[in-house]
Design a protein around this nucleic acid. Structure first.
Lengths: 213, 213, 213, 213
DNA sequence: CATGAATGAGCCTTCATTCAT
DNA sequence: TATGAATGAAGGCTCATTCAT
């Protein structure tokens, strides 16, 4: 998958970032590629360019550092996500956009994706809860969109919860494992297509097909 | 999700199993629920009912034990999977069956599912390779089925690789997170329905709909 | 033991005290109740209401801070002790007064008592020396009083050094562990009685008893 | 103070002792001379001639190791003390013997003495409780002897609790600080003399003096 | 084959001390 | 003087691995 924007806007150089940000960045980079236990505080400190003790000025423990990274990631996601959302369009378009935004967003933030996607079993109560909450939020979003579409006769009768899980799983899977040269924009177009066909009523689909020629 | 078969065929009791099997079982049970690093050789030994030193008679290291569990799991999967496959039916039916078998199989083997689904990042070269190989095998299976269907005009024009990832991701997602009272058989029916609609040509679908009434 | 004076004369409020005094007070309070190593410079600074760096403006190290507290304590003891001493009375009375003053003094200064009484072994050469010097000073005081009494035939023949240690140990023990509702004044009367009987000649004692009734 | 027995019976060589005993011995030696926090597990291990991990096979934590040493010490004390006690003699003799035994016992076990005598503030709830219990046991012993003596008219009217503390404090003080060339046996004779005179009735004393010449 | 006591490298965390402001 | 963020050496504890029995 080719990244959405080959050249991201120049980020502030490390020197401009706060220590806290440097630590969060360093942690994200490491935790995204290695298991919780495999990442040592020594290496986080080294990667962040600070002394080990400094980590503990900002986070009381490794556990809290990890959770801090997670929470920080979610805040980023939510902020950027909310900026991208447009209301008012029809349900099919909103589903399409939700999927496309997700793909575009994470394709630029591989580390965040890996962090969230990692199913590290029972790392900690707190971590599990955060991830679970996040997941359920997403499921609820898709499920409610689907229910709305069903009420309007646009989406076929099916278990909205099941369909929502299908969508989420498909997106995750493609983001993590789709190794290809195709542009992200294309994927962000094709995958929603596939998924929308799965849940749309035939009637509508057929009509669309006819319209499209 | 209600389990497929409430009473599985009586497995050999621990006493009848070889030491190696007891160790593999114990390891699976533990690694499925806790991170690699959180599982200690002490606890594996205790769970298996053998002395710690004995583990090293069968596996040269913790790493190899983990890989052994993984490999053993795949052998089980492959053996049982192959027993279930029936050739000759049409492509749509084969896709449906592949999905349904996957759901049925793993819904009875939660530990195995968790072990495979756990994306423990970069635990080790070897481990990653095994999981990746496994995944690519599955992708290839679905992709080739889809290509076949496309050649026969049953499946719509789409990127078979992308569609295969969609299917795998959807199945994984539903298996891991679909918390419901519905029977597994129902899920194993509904999810393939959704997924097949995503990839089937409209013409066929419409015809089917008409046929179905 | 009930304190000697329920309401001590109003001490200068923290605001009036110099930084150095505030640090010494804070340190005394903490070191009296926790081991040297358990007291952190952070907490001393917090308790004193100054920044951590400020501690190092007044004391070059934690060790020196501790010694400073010790020395300051001894200066206080000596100053107040000297104020209380009255010369000229007979030996028995001077022994009695020495004991009583010690009891009265420390019963009002529990923190100081705890600090001196704490036998933190080998904390440091310097500290040990200070405490040892202090102890030997006290021993010498009592021993010389006893010797004087022996010369005058008032005290029985015994090892003055041994008797001095007995007195000091008894006072320390009672101050630290005598948990009772009796007034300190009573203790400061009864304990010297006991100790004086231990060292006085029988003849004298008997005579006194007769005199007392 | 010259030790009671210059040549103790040949102790089992380190090789004969169990690992647990070696660890307890090493710990006692270190904790007796340095504060709890100043003693590192590394040094205990080195002193005991075992690897650091081995300590944790026998004691779950440094804290428990310390308490183990304390408890072990008390068991030793109690066992040997009980062996030395002779009943039936008169109260004065029993007090004298109690003191003398204590002096003799600890003069041979300086490390144990230092460990018990160390007033390390608030090291831990558990430790404090053990030492306090121990102390109160001793106090109770002496107090009850004194009360018995008072009932029989042998001891003078005084606060038995106060007198008990005097005795304990005196013994502690002499054991810890009496640096002299005199034999322990002599001390073990002289100190009880002093202390008994403090609590005995004059009448009796006078009679004794007359008897003695 | 089987055992489990012993080992010691490695990690999280603390805290005395420094120094730029 | 005063501050407090930053440092990094050191300590308690874990656990994979070994090996004598």
């Amino acid at each position: 998958m080719k990244p959405f924007k080959p050249a991201p806007p120049p980020l502030p150089t490390p020197a401009q970032k706060s220590k806290r940000e440097r630590i969060l960045d360093a942690g994200l980079k490491l935790f995204a590629h290695e298991s919780y236990q495999a990442v040592t505080m020594d290496r986080v400190a080294q990667e962040a360019g600070v002394a080990k003790g400094t980590l503990y000025l900002y986070f009381p423990s490794k556990e809290e550092l990890y959770l801090g990274i997670l929470k920080n990631g979610f805040e980023t996601v939510n902020r950027l996500y909310n900026e991208s959302v447009e209301e008012g369009t029809d349900v099919r378009e909103r589903v399409r956009r939700a999927i496309a935004i997700g793909i575009g967003f994470y394709s630029e933030r591989r580390d965040l994706l890996r962090l969230f996607a990692t199913e590290e079993p029972r790392m900690a109560e707190a971590r599990d809860r955060i991830l679970r909450d996040r997941r359920e939020e997403s499921i609820a979003l898709y499920a409610s969109l689907i229910e709305e579409g069903q009420r309007r006769g646009i989406f076929a009768r099916c278990d909205p919860h099941l369909a929502a899980l299908m969508i989420l799983g498909a997106v995750r899977s493609v983001l993590l494992y789709y190794e290809t040269d195709r542009d992200v924009e294309e994927i962000a177009h094709d995958l929603p297509d596939l998924l929308l066909r799965a849940i749309s009523t035939r009637e509508l689909e057929t009509r669309e097909m006819l319209r499209a020629g």
